[in-house]
Design a protein around this nucleic acid. Structure first.
Length: 240
DNA sequence: ACATTAATTATGT
DNA sequence: ACATAATTAATGT
């Protein structure tokens, strides 16, 4: 039966969701409780936007499970994939960068689960939760370093090496062991790889086919597993 | 050393 | 059956 409208049922989020995650690892269970009671949880289908570039940063997020694809669109309409964020990390933390709007769009690369809080809570989180700010600045620093490396790659390396580096990054961050190698844990297309490397899906397809022929990787539709990481590193590294 | 264009085939609902 | 992904060859800068 269709019942009367009622307020969103208040699910008590389990404390184990946050305990152990770096930004919260130093907190006692009372503090975790506090934080969880102010959070809202939401599930996202694959490919749905969590927030969009330019929009006011109303909330910040903790990705509990799944993967976030950070995306920007050029004025001419081409998409660029800035990076991927795995579960267990904060994202949409515009406030940490001194922004009031989101600097990029966040799309789920797989079905995902995220907590979020109103951005007005950011300062109190920083002020009263030990380790929160230092840990978040660590992740900001890590991401900055990655983007830094990407800039170098873009400027100096050829497409094949950039693709190799992109895949290695994904494998390091999201790789899960399967028989015969390490698989990228979420669906990824040649188009995606091209948007990460400033290339085209055709070039990506050709290079991947070549690698597959030589046993470096194996791939199906939207799936890539690295069989020989070592040789891939050789390809990606100093001029071959 | 790569993009573009185009045609063809494979794969998932 | 249909849409989306991937491959492959030919041609262009």
């Amino acid at each position: 039966m269709r019942n009367a409208k009622r307020a969103r049922p208040h699910f008590r989020l389990d404390e184990s969701l946050l305990t152990g995650l770096p930004p919260f690892s130093k907190l006692d269970s009372r503090q975790i409780r506090e934080i969880l009671d102010q959070a809202s949880a939401r599930r996202y289908d694959e490919g749905s936007a969590v927030f969009e570039e330019g929009r006011s940063a109303e909330r910040f997020f903790m990705l509990l499970d799944g993967y976030i694809r950070v995306v920007r669109i050029s004025p001419s309409g081409e998409q660029v994939i800035v990076m991927h964020i795995p579960g267990g990390q904060l994202f949409g933390i515009a406030k940490a960068l001194g922004h009031t709007t989101y600097p990029a769009t966040a799309v789920t690369a797989a079905e995902s689960l995220a907590l979020s809080w109103p951005t007005r809570l950011w300062d109190t989180f920083v002020a009263q939760y030990e380790g929160f700010s230092t840990e978040t600045y660590k992740t900001v620093g890590t991401r900055l370093g990655e983007m830094n490396n990407r800039i170098m790659e873009m400027a100096t390396q050829q497409v094949e090496q950039r693709i190799a580096n992109a895949i290695l990054r994904l494998v390091n961050q999201t790789g899960r062991k399967v028989e015969g190698g390490i698989e990228i844990d979420f669906p990824i297309t040649r188009q995606d790889l091209s948007e990460m490397t400033g290339s085209t899906l055709h070039t990506v397809s050709r290079t991947l086919s070549g690698w597959e022929k030589h046993g470096l990787i194996s791939s199906g539709r939207k799936r890539i597993t690295v069989c020989d990481p070592h040789r891939l590193v050789l390809l990606s590294g100093a001029t071959g």
